[in-house]
């Protein structure tokens, strides 16, 4: 009995600490988090419980404006836009999140090696990153899509290639700073192996940078996915993503503006929210680079 109470107490404590941590963010960041949470929860409910109905079912007249029956209107095939929006939000967030996770793994690995080892290896990694960085993001994404063919894989690869260079550079810089500190020198003198130093000492001390860059990468990822799908290289019909929905709505901008406005606004909100969270994280982890003096 005592053990159960202790475990529950510990859980409460963890939840409480998590809540306190989130509550410590500024109002802008909290609003952004709520926005993302609402978007994600709605998309999840749509996926799990069919909120808004089936995204593929033909349910009403074509191009019907928003109403009680069709809260977000219908599209050019008479499908309710709401479930397609929810599916689009889920696809965009999930695709971007998976891509950014991959980016984080690759960039962290490359950045730590480049920053810690330096020399030719570090130079080579950074130069490859520079070459990729030289391409405008959307041009690089189109190039990738042209090679691997339009679809989810193209979007994923494009996002990774677009976001890896900057994140690698930032992780490399942070690693170089950490590698010069005394506790790393002490660890080296004590005979601690390089992989252990990288994972236990360096990684732990650059986690803030990774988190901040990860959020920025996520907003870039959403933008790249949207751009690619808009241009027809990303998610393909009958799938749905925010970029694809915007693209579908373009033709009907005058006759049925909800088809472009709703996915467009959600896209803007998602990117705005993630950038605000990123700014707040940066203020927290890297106070010397804060934008304001408040």
């Amino acid at each position: 009995m005592t053990a159960v109470i202790r475990v529950e107490g510990r859980r409460r404590s963890v939840l409480r600490r998590a809540w306190d941590y989130l509550a410590s963010f500024d109002g802008l960041a909290k609003t952004a988090m709520w926005t993302l949470a609402v978007l994600f929860t709605a998309a999840l409910l749509g996926r799990l419980f069919g909120l808004g109905g089936s995204p593929t079912a033909i349910v009403g007249p074509r191009l019907a404006p928003p109403s009680l029956a069709y809260p977000a209107g219908t599209d050019s095939l008479g499908r309710s836009l709401l479930p397609r929006l929810l599916e689009g939000v889920m696809t965009t967030l999930l695709l971007s999140a998976v891509a950014v996770l991959l980016t984080a793994v690759i960039a962290t690995l490359c950045g730590i090696i480049a920053g810690y080892r330096g020399g030719r290896t570090g130079g080579l990694i950074m130069r490859v990153g520079d070459i990729l960085y030289a391409f405008p993001a959307i041009v690089l994404a189109i190039l990738v899509a042209a090679v691997v063919g339009p679809g989810y894989v193209a979007a994923l690869c494009s996002i990774v290639l677009v976001t890896v260079p900057l994140m690698t550079r930032m992780v490399g810089q942070a690693t170089r700073l950490v590698a010069q500190r005394d506790f790393i020198t002490s660890a080296v003198i004590s005979g601690v192996s390089t992989p252990v130093i990288m994972t236990r000492h360096v990684l732990r001390n650059i986690s803030g940078t990774i988190a901040v860059q990860g959020t920025y990468a996520l907003s870039v990822a959403i933008l790249v996915e949207g751009g690619l799908s808009f241009l027809g290289y990303g998610v393909q019909l009958p799938g749905s993503s925010l970029g694809l929905l915007v693209q579908e709505g373009t033709l009907y901008m005058v006759k049925a503006p909800w088809l472009i406005l709703l996915p467009g606004v959600i896209l803007v909100l998602a990117i705005l929210a993630i950038n605000l969270i990123g700014d707040s994280l940066r203020d927290r982890f890297e106070p010397r680079e804060a934008r304001s003096l408040e």
Partner: peptide, 12 residues
């Protein structure tokens, strides 16, 4: 968004 999407006529 609501204002703009509401300012439309009957289905095409």
């Amino acid at each position: 968004t609501l204002l703009l999407t509401g300012c439309t006529g009957e289905p095409a």
